[in-house]
Design a protein around this nucleic acid. Sequence first.
DNA 1: TATTTATTGTGAAACAATTCACATATACAA
DNA 2: TTGTATATGTGAATTGTTTCACAATAAATA
Lengths: 217, 217
Amino acid sequence: MVNRDTGKKKISESTIRRLSLYYRALSLLEKENYETISSRELAKREKLTPAQVRKDLSFFGSFGTRGLGYPVSELKDRIAKILGINRIWNVAMIGVGNIGSALVSYKEFQKQGFAIKLIFDNDQRKIGSNHKGLIVSDIKEMPHLLLEHNIEMVVLAVPAIVAQYIVDEVVQAGIKAILNFAPINLKVPDDVFVRNENMSMELEYLSFAISNNYTPN
Amino acid sequence: MVNRDTGKKKISESTIRRLSLYYRALSLLEKENYETISSRELAKREKLTPAQVRKDLSFFGSFGTRGLGYPVSELKDRIAKILGINRIWNVAMIGVGNIGSALVSYKEFQKQGFAIKLIFDNDQRKIGSNHKGLIVSDIKEMPHLLLEHNIEMVVLAVPAIVAQYIVDEVVQAGIKAILNFAPINLKVPDDVFVRNENMSMELEYLSFAISNNYTPN
DNA sequence: TATTTATTGTGAAACAATTCACATATACAA
DNA sequence: TTGTATATGTGAATTGTTTCACAATAAATA
């Protein structure tokens, strides 16, 4: 439960993912002019239990008022701070195929503070072309451009066959966070975070669910 | 552990997701002409433990040979059957914005047996246009077209604001599986499966990890 | 054929996550 | 000012998941 080295409580991946859900719900509640929200109501909106909401939040502090609930705007800001999204992140998109170019236009990234600042590809026909106001750079320029533009995260949307090669260069350039769309297990040093996004996997889950009359819970 | 009603062992979501990983790994091993694979080797490739691999598989039967390991091709086929991907699924794409049109060209879907058969949009400028050999249909035609073409799954790539309205129609048409890209919690009957794909959430996870020097495990 | 080696399949143990339940605190009404 | 209703924060209990550890068993070898 408590880390021996740091004395910090271990936060589970599920808790972190739920923080994102809370953040999104709170953003909506703010727009609806809610001032406070109870764990019960918040849980209901995200199909969770009130106890879970309270426990999740309690890992990071005590944000509510007994008898009243949580202050919507304040809690939203606190969670933003916890998630590290209370600022703009400079992101580079690597690969401008189907997925890559769709993601460059994906407004949710921008909205959550992930600003795509550079786009790369190795295809001469794409290099120099304009995507949402950004010019596609030659991937050969990547190492120094990542550094010059203070890029901290990279979205990898390249074919599986070249993914590892490119990731090695990305790691070389000091990037510590990678969102990977290639269906492959990337090898990276321990201090580099990789999240794999595999959309077929979600369809396979649905396939399993239908095929087996699956009922979670 | 065991469901009182059905007598079936409860399969966790994590196990199902790992089956997808095993399937992918086995497909690769098959191409590399492996005949058998041990739980140890398979685990190593997917960054899991051998015990986990064996336990996951044991929920569905006994597929290996002691002393030898698992037969690659056979296990792959068995998992395909378990996941329900030993056949083609007819899928409809709803919404041909950035994400929608990218996904229509996304080869992984096709490769895993998810065949996009219909595309819908409500934008008159898009209706009738050609995407990868498919003509975009008017969303008004959706209810009967879904039925006529035996569509069983739907990928929802529409703006959040209209997502619930469209889902209601999709459910009406008898669809039981929905992959949702809209950042919203859809309300559906209990027998309809929804998976939410939220790509910002993955970046937020990375943001948290960097910001907090997070170390999973 | 007997022996050694490798690896599965699986109860039991250990660990992790969720839920319960209640003491505590605050708001609000009378 | 007091009482009542509401809702948090959190140890403890429960439930779920992963790992351990080993008997069982098949292959390879002598």
